[in-house]
């Protein structure tokens, strides 16, 4: 029986890991909405939500519960199948990206060595890009199926924005990949643990990547798909109840994932600087690793919010000018420079 020779414990282990990571990212996303409001309040000299529970900590639960109890409307003239598919796709695409992010090195549970990464695919970063670009279908389909002109315009904006900024993002990534020489995220982190973080070699690349990540997550200043004042909330205008919640939630999950990817690519992933993890017991090193990555994610999330509550939204032509005339040439120059330096040093 060839079937029995399969390591069934591996499947169980991976399933548990998948459940933990999905629940954790949903939980973090839930509290990111809370943090968003708190950060907004603090940056504007306000107090923010502080009524539900101690320090308002139950606020996200109250918000979620409220969304669940709202009436779930589907517009009469909408395409019902696509209308439901839109938010589902947005959420799935957001969650699928977690699969290749290394959350830590290894842990030992019941005598088994568990890798704290769902799948260390050898084309990890390509997978991330593929899935992230799928996310735009959630916006497109949702906006189109709503049968509403505002939603449609927002969806088109979202799609063209995502395409424009993905180019610069990919180009800035190529420079990183020239240095690492691998697409495997686990390997990229291991290289940074033994050597320098990639941010040291690629500060400009990181900057471009970060700006493009803002655009990919539809965060301010690039939140044109949901521009409240001109498009009436954009592509999720016709949505209500938990479908709307899924869209809003997917945005936060996307933020978390892009923070994790940025931490992995440029800031050493789960690597705590000035600490040699190999001397520590495996499980302690794993805990430190996970905590380090989470800290880096939280810092990135704060910067995301900090930017959101500082900068107003770009006008659409400014957005396109920045994407095509500034970001892409910069990314190209960065790529060429990196390539030239690598050739010159003869690595």
């Amino acid at each position: 029986m060839i079937l029995l020779s399969f390591d069934w414990m591996l499947a169980v282990e991976k399933l548990i890991l998948i459940a933990v990571i999905i629940l954790a990212s949903l939980g973090i996303a839930l509290y990111t909405t809370f943090a968003e409001r708190k950060v907004a309040a603090i940056l504007q000299d306000r107090r923010g939500p502080n009524r539900a529970g101690p320090f308002g900590l139950l606020q996200p639960l109250a918000d979620g519960l409220k969304l669940f109890f709202k009436e779930d409307l589907i517009p009469n003239n909408s395409n019902k199948f696509l209308f439901i598919l839109g938010p589902a796709l947005a959420m799935t695409a957001a969650l699928m990206t977690c699969a290749v992010v290394p959350f830590g090195d290894k842990a030992e549970v019941f005598g088994r060595t568990v890798t704290l990464q769902i799948a260390d695919v050898n084309i990890g970063i390509l997978y991330v890009f593929a899935v992230v670009s799928l996310g735009v279908y959630g916006i497109m389909i949702g906006g189109w199926a709503s049968n509403n002109k505002f939603s449609l315009i927002a969806a088109l904006r979202g799609a063209s924005q995502a395409i424009s900024y993905e180019l610069a993002m990919g180009l800035s990534l190529i420079a990183v990949l020239m240095i690492t020489g691998t697409l495997q995220l686990g390997e990229i982190v291991k290289q940074q643990m033994s050597g320098q973080w990639n941010i040291v070699y690629q500060p400009l690349g990181f900057l471009i990547f970060f700006i493009c990540a803002l655009a990919e997550c539809n965060r301010t200043p690039f939140d044109l798909p949901e521009a409240e004042n001109e498009l009436n909330f954009g592509y999720h205008q016709e949505y209500s109840s938990m479908k709307m919640g899924f869209y809003l939630f997917a945005e936060y999950v996307n933020m978390i994932i892009s923070s994790a990817v940025m931490a992995t690519l440029f800031f050493g992933g789960y690597d705590l600087p000035f600490l040699d993890e190999s001397t520590l017991p495996v499980n302690i090193a794993a805990i430190i690793g996970v905590a380090t990555l989470l800290t880096k994610i939280v810092i990135f999330l704060f910067v995301f919010m900090w930017i959101r509550w500082t900068i107003p939204r770009f006008r659409y032509d400014q957005l396109m000018n920045l994407g095509w005339k500034k970001m892409i040439p910069l990314a190209l120059a960065n790529m060429l420079l990196t390539g030239a330096v690598i050739l010159w040093l003869g690595k």
Binding site: L43, W306, I307
Partner: peptide, 11 residues
Amino acid sequence: IIKGMAITFSH
């Protein structure tokens, strides 16, 4: 943008 962010941070 960095100037603006410094202002919000001071708040």
